[in-house]
Design a protein around this nucleic acid. Sequence first.
DNA 1: ATAGTATATGCATACTGTTGCATATAGGTC
DNA 2: GACCTATATGCAACAGTATGCATATACTAT
Lengths: 179, 179
Amino acid sequence: MSLRYALLAALHESPATGYELTQRFRHRLAHVWNASHQQIYRELGKLHEEGLLTMTEVPQTEKPDRKLYQVTAEGEQDLRTWLTRPQPRPPTRDPLLVKLFAGDLLDLPALRAEMERLRMGWEQQLQTFQAIEQEHFSAPETLPQHYRMQHLALRRGILGIQASLRWLEEMEETLDQDN
Amino acid sequence: MSLRYALLAALHESPATGYELTQRFRHRLAHVWNASHQQIYRELGKLHEEGLLTMTEVPQTEKPDRKLYQVTAEGEQDLRTWLTRPQPRPPTRDPLLVKLFAGDLLDLPALRAEMERLRMGWEQQLQTFQAIEQEHFSAPETLPQHYRMQHLALRRGILGIQASLRWLEEMEETLDQDN
DNA sequence: ATAGTATATGCATACTGTTGCATATAGGTC
DNA sequence: GACCTATATGCAACAGTATGCATATACTAT
């Protein structure tokens, strides 16, 4: 249900095409909301049908036409209303933790390998986030509310990954004890 | 796809009924995997049909019969195989962060109220987790592998909530600056 | 030449998860 | 007497997400 509002929020920042939104969801919104391009195109169609978005076809030579979407007044109102309603916390569903619950059946070398891949991924993502922070949010106090809030969303991502990395260290210590 | 393996892992610990599994998922497995009782009953039926579980009806006077499920050799093998395969990270989908992305449209009092509810919920969950840790994992080095792994899953929950609480503090500081 | 990546859009199907409802009994609360 | 909680199970419908496939062009790398 939140995908539509994630799209409205992203388009409220600046009008965009489905393709551009897909990129944003993969990069700048990676720690906020996840969606495939198929999902995004489908939802944009619905939002347009419902009058929450306007669509302008931008012809291109030698490439498919781009469809530029923009939030309408009705769309913004819809988003505003949603923003005031408290949202449920996303339920936890982590396959890695499921594995730990079957602890005595675990293949420890396979687990270590998985942890190593995980650590590399998280470290890279942390670097990406910290680079974004330095580039856009180095002086948060001076920014308008809009960007201060987006900075807080980024902080969530950074703190979450740091906690994950600390957890990985704890795991490694525990596994080294047994061996 | 992981629900079936969460069930196999839980039943591998000890045989149980759908009702008991629902309780476990709500409490001890809350930070691992989330599922409703309807989902659990449905999946248990499938696993039984596929021969991964045995089922014994336990008649009760004046209450519906209980159906006790146990993992078969085939079920355990299936679980083992799954455990060695690397699992994808769960995608992030957090409505609260979506809200922050529409930062300039936010109603700050409503946001503060939502944060306060969140803080209370997290603090309570942290206390629960820490109580479990003290009761069952006060001397982790002495425990067999099975429980050391389950302790690590719990540590994940604890570190995650602590990071969430630190983030909330950052948010409160930021909101206090403006206003 | 062939493969891969990027731009740009989307349909159809399968799987997973949520919500509403249903049944049956016992005990406690307003 | 009416309502809530707990035990114990489940069906049916719907919403949301994932996966596989399709189309079309241009550029780069091997």
